[in-house]
Each structure stands twice: as structure tokens, then as C-alpha cells.
Design a protein around this nucleic acid. Structure first.
Lengths: 223, 223
DNA sequence: CGCGTTTACGTAACGCTGTTCACTCAAGTG
DNA sequence: CACTTGAGTGAACAGCGTTACGTAAACGCG
């Protein structure tokens, strides 16, 4: 099930097919809820488009009727954002935390985190788009900004930046930790965003982009 | 505003209100086409959401029926992308070309271009989102990648980077012009993207973000 | 056992969307 | 005049998110 090719790949796309269902028992409503999330996740990864994840399509895949979805989620946005949030929880556990625990050279750790983050983004483009490229008005409040700041990649970057500062590895006039973190994260976010939104653009290979970006951020361009 | 009570009142060009219309004459179909674009532009900027620019809303604003739109545009995507493309043509003429013609210090020119580009993005968030943050499958082919590469900001950045290289201002191992341009543009794109998509995120002021990004790209972080 | 409450779900429908088909109406041409 | 052609309508289709309302099944309790 777990594709060993990537540590940032995430759960199991179950089946998109319809399902023979019994009515859930009294306390087992959460089982239906999980089935809905699994079906939405499968539809999203299989189609690569949020448009394919309609309430009706999810309901068909689960084997219930459209209004039943609303007994488990207040609206479509909450459903689809919960699907994506699980992906970002997974990357936190699979990529960020191991790097933080390893505790090696903070600058090298930053580079490794950057590469993993970008790879995660381009391997889960629709999840990334929903989470970080949508309209703020369409984003459930609980996911609006917290997920960005507390999410593994940003928080992990902040910790590594602080370690680098503590170790005296950064220039004195580089700015405070928050600003440095923001710069690094926004730059990587830019790489992911353009790769996700313009996949056919004639661009340097992704690895070259990330390496050049990291190298430029760390060493600068000027002679 | 003056209440236009006259039944023969001429419709205001950029109004979102309904319009008293005559049927266009034989060769004057392009006039209707322009009215459609103006109405879509007005709806987009007034609402700040692509969702408000429905075919029916545009048709009502122009004073025609929905199917009439399709005599001038193959589908909604072509209409809304043409609206946005005009914005990006405008920034090319108003921001990029003057900087290129000024011909001052290329590094300072890059910083000035960066600040202008980011400001344009956050001042026209929905246009920016449609142009650069949408799904590739929803983007008309003619706007998919050309607009990114040939657009003023990217092409202008490339020219300034080349000037900086020619003037010996960049490090020898900074990479070729294409890669350097891509890095700079992607980083700025990241700043715009997160500002557009997460406007309520507790972040450093935009000017500080841009200055820090430019300074970091040029001078680097490491001691 | 049986009653009543609660949870899980279905049926039907509303208002909206982008889009298409078939039609009309007016203007310019030979 | 007839004829063509460009501009615009009216009605409709299929799909969307969402809601109001009815119903069936499982549980606690007397």
C-alpha cells in the first residue's frame, strides 16, 4: 500500500466504486463519516480535480444519498478541507518530525526539508491547491491561517531557522527568525505553486529549481 | 451619482447595472464584445470573486441574454482569461517597460520591478488567482504557459538578470540566466500567492516581506 | 414486552450554474 | 424585390450545493 518511492505519499486511495451498504447502527455514524472521507479522498486523487469531488459523486461512491453527507459535514468545504488536512498531518509526521528529531546541521536540515516539502506539493497538487491556493472566503475558518502557521512545514522551518540562528550560522542582518522563516517558506511555496498551476511550463527540472532556490537563499546572488 | 431617468440614457461603460441596449448593427458585434469584457471586468473587481462573474450576471449587466455571450466567446474561461490578460498587458506597459527603458543599475531595477510586481498582484488578487493559480485543465491553451513566459514581469526579469550578468554583478556560480530568473520570479510569485490566498495570515508587512526576499536572494543568508 | 426518543438516512425539491438547440429579427447586398 | 448573414432570444438540459421534511431502525427505560 505504501509506495516506497516517496516518504511524502499519503494514505490509501480505497475504491471509487459504489458500495453495498447496510444502514449504520446507532453509535456507528462515524464509520459512515470515515467512508465519506475515504471516498472523497479517492475521488480527489483519482481525478486530480476538485470538480470531480461533487457531493453526489461522493454519495454514490459511499452508497448513500447526497443529503446524508450533510449529517456528517456542515458543507462541502469542510469535507474537502478535512481530506486535505489529513494529508498535511501525514507530511508532518513522515517528513518534518523526523528531520527535526535527527538534529543534524540545521542548514542541511533546512535544505532537506525544502526538498521534501516541494516534492510533497507536486505529488499532491490538488490537495496543495485546495489548502494553499484557494479563495480565503471559501476556506473554513479553522483552516484559514492556523494550518499554515502550525503546519509541520512552516513550524518545522521556523524551528530549524532558530537553530541556525542560535548556532551563529546566519548573517547578523538577515532579519529575525520570523521574517527569515517567512522568506524561505514563501519562496518554496512559489516553486510549488507554479509547478502545480502551470505543469506544462517549459521550466528547469524541479530538483534544479529547488537546489537553485535553496542555494540562492543561503548564499545569495551578488558577487 | 446622477440618477439617469431618461429612457435613452447612455449606459455607463464600467457599470455593473443593467443597460439599455439597441441591437448592434452588422459590423458592430465587436462593440458588444467589448461591453461584455467591460461588464465582466467590473463584476470581477467589484465582487473580488470569480464566482460572481457568472454568464448570467455578465449578460444582465450588458443587457443581453446568456446565449449571446457565446457568439463572442467560446466559453466562460476564454472570457474571463481575456479580462485578466488585459490587466497583465497593462502592468507590462505601465511598470515593466518603463523600468527596462530607464536602463539604470540592473540590480536596483530588479528590486524595483519586484516591488511593483508584488504590489500589482495583491492589488488585483482575483485576476492574479485566475491567471496564475488556477487548474491547468481549466486554462485556455493560449494562456497556459505563454503568458507566464512572455509576460512583462517574467520577460522583464529575464532581461534585467541578463544585464546584471553582463555587468558582472552576479556570482559566477549563480547559474545561468534562465535559472536565476526562474528563482527570482518563483520567489516573488510565492509572496504574492500567499498574500492573495491567505490575506488574514499574521505575517510581516508586505513591504518587509518583499524587501527581505529581495535582500535574501541577492545577498543570501549565511554568514 | 412496548413506548418514546434518538440517530441515520431517503425523497423531493429549490435555485443556481455553464452550455446548446432551434428560432427570430434586422440589416446589408445583388 | 429576394437572399444571405450577423446578432440576439426563448426554452431547455444536465449538473451543482443545499434544504425541508418524512421515515425506518436501533437503543434506553418502564
Amino acid at each position: 500500500m505504501t509506495p516506497a518511492t516517496s516518504p511524502t505519499a499519503v494514505p490509501a486511495p480505497t475504491s471509487v466504486e459504489p458500495a453495498a451498504r447496510r444502514r449504520a447502527r446507532r453509535g456507528e455514524g462515524d464509520r459512515t463519516r470515515e467512508a465519506i472521507i475515504s471516498a472523497a479522498e479517492a475521488l480527489l486523487t483519482a481525478s486530480g480535480s476538485e470538480d470531480a469531488v461533487s457531493i453526489r459523486a461522493v454519495a454514490d461512491a459511499v452508497g448513500v444519498t447526497p443529503p446524508s453527507i450533510y449529517r456528517h459535514f456542515p458543507d462541502k468545504a469542510h469535507l474537502i478541507f478535512e481530506v486535505c488536512a489529513r494529508h498535511f498531518d501525514a507530511i508532518d509526521a513522515a517528513l518534518v518530525q523526523p528531520i527535526l528529531r535527527a538534529g543534524g546541521d540545521p542548514v542541511e536540515a533546512l535544505a532537506e526539508l525544502a526538498r521534501g516539502y516541494v516534492r510533497f506539493g507536486v505529488e499532491n497538487p490538488e490537495h496543495y491547491r485546495i489548502m494553499f491556493m484557494g479563495h480565503a472566503d471559501h476556506t473554513p475558518g479553522m483552516y484559514a491561517s492556523e494550518r499554515v502557521l502550525e503546519t509541520g512545514s512552516f513550524g518545522g522551518t521556523a524551528q530549524l531557522v532558530q537553530r541556525a540562528i542560535d548556532a551563529g550560522r546566519l548573517r547578523a542582518d538577515a532579519g529575525d527568525a520570523v521574517l527569515v522563516t517567512y522568506v524561505i517558506w514563501a519562496a518554496l511555496h512559489g516553486v510549488v505553486t507554479v509547478a502545480v498551476s502551470k505543469p506544462n511550463m517549459p521550466a528547469p527540472p524541479l530538483d534544479a529549481q529547488v537546489d537553485a532556490m535553496i542555494d540562492t537563499l543561503l548564499h545569495g546572488l551578488l558577487a
